[in-house]
Design a binder for these strands. Structure first.
Lengths: 146, 146
DNA sequence: TATTGTTATACTCTATAACTATA
DNA sequence: TATAGTTATAGAGTATAACAATA
């Protein structure tokens, strides 16, 4: 068993390094948690959606989403209100302040992503994309078995 | 900004799913933390090494390594003793019980890794390998800049 | 009874830095 | 003074489940 060659380990190390370099932008400079950042980014692409949809888009569970959305609301970045058609649902949407904040952050994180991707040629990017999708499927089925 | 297409997000989601499926083995069945599992795996490939080397091999910091090694020692899985040549150093090595535990766990996690890799053909594996190495370099340089 | 979301709680992890022993 | 490792501690994140409101 060679740890250095073990795919889950290699992925964990690379991903952690990349995550930190992104968090250096949205967390250190803008005091957003990872979950808050994900939700803002997801909401920018959606209109008014349910909390559960927002959770699904960001791979967060309902608790993580609930807390992060409350925090974003308290900072005036998102609007959160009960759906009058079905009062069990909460509808969330980005507020102008949230949109403005994203306009500041997005170029920086995209620049960092671009710098990472510059290391790869077109074919490598395509294969990486495909490989991640395939690995995701297999990982899901491993998780289901337990 | 499309979160679903953002490389750091995709990597994080895939890596977390894979990490969980591995932790299902070493944590749920054998009560090892991620750090403990990494150290055991690293020590299996080395003989007697310094704590600092063990930390470096596993990408842990000295604190994480210190705690995980103490825990492994308390369970009789590793030996930890001060280096008599330089009493600031701690020398660690796997004990038979640790080796035996690894012999149980390793086949299971390698089987899971093999199942993941079966999703990829040879070329995809080679490209993924290369891509991860290149991304790691770039991520490191992003981290250094801050 | 089932669904959506919130709250509670205990637990683990993380980050920073102070500290000890040794060199 | 510098190095290797440990201890302290506060803060953040995670997991499980109970809970309230609504359907």
């Amino acid at each position: 068993m060679q740890l250095q060659a073990f795919l889950p380990y290699r992925l964990a190390v690379v991903t952690e390094a990349i995550s930190r370099s992104m968090a250096a932008v949205y967390h250190r400079r803008y005091e957003l948690s990872r979950d808050e950042w994900r939700l803002l980014a997801a909401l920018a692409g959606s209109g008014r959606i349910q909390a559960a949809e927002a959770a699904q888009l960001t791979t967060l569970d309902k608790m993580q989403a609930s807390r992060a959305l409350r925090s974003l609301q308290s900072r005036g970045l998102v609007d959160r209100r009960t759906d009058e058609n079905d009062r069990r649902h909460v509808i969330v949407q980005l507020l102008p302040a949230g949109r403005a904040l994203l306009r500041q952050i997005t170029p920086m994180v995209l620049a960092r992503e671009a710098y990472l991707l510059e290391a790869l040629d077109d074919e490598e990017r395509a294969v990486l994309d495909r490989a991640l999708a395939k690995l995701m499927q297999r990982a899901r089925s491993l998780q289901q078995q337990g």
